[in-house]
Write a protein that binds this DNA or RNA. Sequence first.
DNA 1: CTAAATGCAAACATTTTGCACGTCG
DNA 2: CGACGTGCAAAATGTTTGCATTTAG
Lengths: 139, 139
Amino acid sequence: VIEPAGDLLRERSLRRTRRRLRMIEVLRAARRPLTARELREQLGERNVDLATVYRTLERFVAASLASRVQLGDGTARYEMAGRSHHHHLVCTKCGAVESLATCQVGPLEDLALREHGFRVARHSLEFFGTCQGCNPKRP
Amino acid sequence: VIEPAGDLLRERSLRRTRRRLRMIEVLRAARRPLTARELREQLGERNVDLATVYRTLERFVAASLASRVQLGDGTARYEMAGRSHHHHLVCTKCGAVESLATCQVGPLEDLALREHGFRVARHSLEFFGTCQGCNPKRP
DNA sequence: CTAAATGCAAACATTTTGCACGTCG
DNA sequence: CGACGTGCAAAATGTTTGCATTTAG
């Protein structure tokens, strides 16, 4: 049961515009985090200003509707939040991005607190390498 | 016993210029990864062009002399390579960056291979939160 | 002497900001 | 109606590139 995009917006007191509903649609359909530019292209509307896309995405992030992720190149990418915590497998050959559901960094966060007095709020873990399709086959 | 900066360069067939020796000095002295701009400031020389700094840093990275790290904001930072593998604790209040020596993501890389056929070459893990100094004291 | 390193200027890409107008609630 | 959303233009950043000059090996 997926919550209607309109409800997501209303719950957060964000205005429900066609543009925003469509942005949520696109983000949901994406099987990998999108840059602002990619998102705009997939909107399939004309005259969409990147400034608006950025502003809206930041709105979404602030409302915990989306989250911003960094995948190694300096470019910001966005994906719907709410999915369970996961990490990214970034293929350095073809650029594909997959998700890794498992996360075992809890113990490291404890360690950060014990050894450095550092209180971890959030972490990000990305893997770089080659995906199945790009790996050399062994006959 | 730290290897003289000049040797580091010679071993990699990189030309030994005063500028580069100084860059290595600064990177070594830094207790956290530096942006190109920060590095330039700490050089203490005049007329140093950022383009040169960027080019040189990329040279260093290609020669495995330095490594580029991303700390959440889109800005590239550089630190000397060769230090043992570690991760970063980034304080979101004061901006301090500490290093966490322990790394336990090996099992996750195995998982990536088993479940996704993804061959991990490299990973990056950063923690965001508050450092000891910024944490609320408990009296 | 020759290839590499550097400064300078300019190009690029991404992201942010100011302002006027349009639209949701 | 009033606050918020959007387009447009422009600016701010970070990073890269072309070219002429200098310098290390």
